[in-house]
Design a protein around this nucleic acid. Structure first.
Lengths: 202, 202
DNA sequence: CATGCATGTTAATTGCATTAACATTCACGG
DNA sequence: CCGTGAATGTTAATGCAATTAACATGCATG
């Protein structure tokens, strides 16, 4: 199949995705050009359009990859902590913050897909990770017999905290108020207090 | 001065900012072109460059405007609630969420300025609003004699919650897990539990 | 071997951003 | 009142990146 030196590339679609990821990692943002990606993959500027309807489609594909990576990171973090423990929940938050901070452009990617048809697809990609998180939160609730609290809602709230901190940190906004702010530490105490509050409402 | 029908515009700089805001409000995103803004302001495509170094500079100017509006909204919200009350703190969060939700492109604007020299300027614009919020949080702490907690840190955490919820809501991500999610309600219970937790640590 | 589909290529086309070179006013000093 | 320079507009490049059109190649299959 993958004839390395021929007219046809063999696996251009994936090569383009990989090129895109590389460009994104290097520049820290998702503003590479289609042409750059094509060049990096060793093809002409028009070739990508045989595999992606437009630039956005390529970005979507990259985003999918990131979502999958996130799901894996979440899963392995979940496996590493005792089910239902507070540590487990907090570690998942940290995992999320770390994942985003290491991929500053990931958030951009998601955002820029916001108002489109990718909506449906995104759900599918992201669910594995998020559902796993909901599961972990559910375990936490169950272990404390908090029967009247909805794990999904709790998970969304915790996710929002982690997300907000990540984004503001990546932006530099956090640091402009708390120099050298430690997003992870903030998340620990933030989510910690939140969980305390939830438990107290028992 | 503002000769309406002459070669010179009179106040192009502001006209461009207003045009940009209009375009942003209409499209819901900050991806208008310099040419569009110029056309809307009734000048040639090159004219804007007499007032803004480049597209980014215009976006910065718009962002400044939004930051000022936010500061005003925060201030008037703060004035409307009893100082130090929990309602006051929550209302400020709601105010933030509402402000962002009504300006979906605002967040983009901020984000896209992230890695630049605008850093310093941004602080100045945003501080009035945020510092006011810190003040409100400080009042809340004081009223409860929580002397060992840092209002600034608390404020950052609450801000992150509001920000995270806003962003995920605007993205449609919240709704993909909780159909028709009510960001304001989520913030109330989220921040509420958090404050409970903080108080409990007394 | 003939042929069609998938996949590449090169050569437009188009839409901006941005700059250069030129034009028009305005404000001000003489 | 006139000359002049600074500020601000204009039109005409330039250059880049997205996307499409028209053409080329090769693989796979009958």
């Amino acid at each position: 199949m993958s004839n390395c030196n021929s007219y046809h590339h063999g696996d251009l679609r994936n090569a383009l995705i990989i090129a895109a990821v590389k460009l994104i990692q290097e520049s820290g943002s998702s503003d590479f050009s289609m042409s750059e990606a094509a060049k990096l993959a060793g093809v002409s500027a028009a070739a990508p359009y045989r595999h992606f309807a437009d630039r956005k489609a390529l970005l979507s594909a990259v985003a999918e990859l990131y979502f999958i990576g996130l799901a894996e990171a979440v899963q392995s973090t979940r496996d590493a902590y005792p089910s239902g423990s507070r540590e487990s929940v907090l570690a998942l938050g940290h995992c999320y913050v770390r994942y985003l901070s290491e991929r500053p452009a990931f958030y951009n990617l998601i955002w820029n897909q916001g108002g489109e048809a990718s909506q449906g697809r995104r759900d599918v990609e992201q669910r594995p990770g998020f559902l796993s998180f909901v599961g972990a939160v559910g375990d936490w609730c169950r272990q404390r017999e908090l029967n009247d609290c909805d794990p999904l809602e709790l998970a969304v709230k915790l996710w929002s905290m982690a997300h907000g901190l990540s984004v503001l940190k990546m932006n530099g906004q956090l640091d402009s108020y708390i120099p050298d702010a430690d997003a992870q530490a903030l998340l620990s105490s933030s989510a910690g207090a939140f969980l305390d509050g939830v438990e107290a409402t028992r």
